[in-house]
C-alpha cells in the first residue's frame, strides 16, 4: 500500500481519498478507521468493579484526583482511570475538559448551569444536578474560555481574534 500526502492550502476541509484496485479487507479497515476517527479519539480505558471498560469521554461528567488515583464520573458509574489528571488536561482540553480546581477537571459539555459564588468561586451544576465549585484560581480561565468577564477578558479575546 502506498501512502500519498498532499498539502493544499486552498481547500477548506481535509479530504481523504482511498484509491484501490480491489475493495479488500485492508481497504475496508482503512475506510472503517477513517469513518470512526472522531469516536476513537474520544475513548478512554477505565476500570470499574474489577473490569476494564472503554468509556466514551463525552459520557464523563467530571474527573477527580483522590489519594493520587484518578476517577471519572459518568451519570451512572464511577470509573478509575489509568492516567494522571494533568495528562487528561493536556490531552483532552480541546474536547472541552477544563480544570476547575487542583483536583478536578470538568466536561464543559455536561454542565447544566453556572452561578458566581462568594469568594470569587463559581458554582457549577452538572447535568445530573451534582454541584461542584470552580476555585478562585481557575475561574478566570473558564471565564476567558466562555468569553465572559470584565474588560480584561474582552481585551484578551479581541487581541486573539
Amino acid at each position: 500500500m502506498l501512502l500519498e500526502l498532499k498539502r493544499n492550502k486552498d481547500i477548506k476541509e481535509t479530504c481523504v481519498t482511498v484509491e484501490y484496485r480491489e475493495r479488500d479487507k485492508q481497504v475496508n479497515s482503512l475506510v472503517d478507521y477513517v469513518s470512526h476517527l472522531n469516536k476513537m479519539d474520544k475513548l478512554v480505558m477505565a476500570n470499574a468493579e474489577n473490569s476494564l471498560y472503554q468509556v466514551n469521554l463525552q459520557d464523563i461528567l467530571y474527573m477527580e484526583s483522590v489519594d493520587r488515583r484518578t476517577f471519572g464520573y459518568t451519570a451512572e458509574k464511577t470509573y478509575e482511570l489509568n492516567c494522571k489528571l494533568y495528562e487528561i488536561e493536556e490531552l483532552y482540553q480541546s474536547l472541552g475538559f477544563i480544570r476547575i480546581s487542583k483536583s478536578c477537571i470538568v466536561n464543559l459539555q455536561k454542565i447544566h448551569a453556572l452561578k458566581p459564588d462568594y469568594g470569587g468561586k463559581i458554582l457549577v451544576t452538572m447535568e445530573n444536578k451534582e454541584k461542584l465549585y470552580i476555585s478562585r484560581q481557575y475561574a478566570p480561565v473558564i471565564k476567558e474560555k466562555l468569553g465572559i468577564g470584565g474588560k480584561k477578558n474582552e481585551r484578551i479575546s479581541k487581541k486573539s481574534t
Binding site: 481523504v16 469513518s35 453556572l114
Partner: peptide
Amino acid sequence: SHLAKGRHYTIKLKAYQSESSHEASDAPQL
C-alpha cells in the same frame, strides 16, 4: 447580582456547548 451574572454565564456556556457540538458532529463523511 450572582443570579443575574449566573444567567449570563449559563447563556454563554450554552452558546459554547452548541458551537462545540457542531464541531464534534463534523465526523468524516463519505
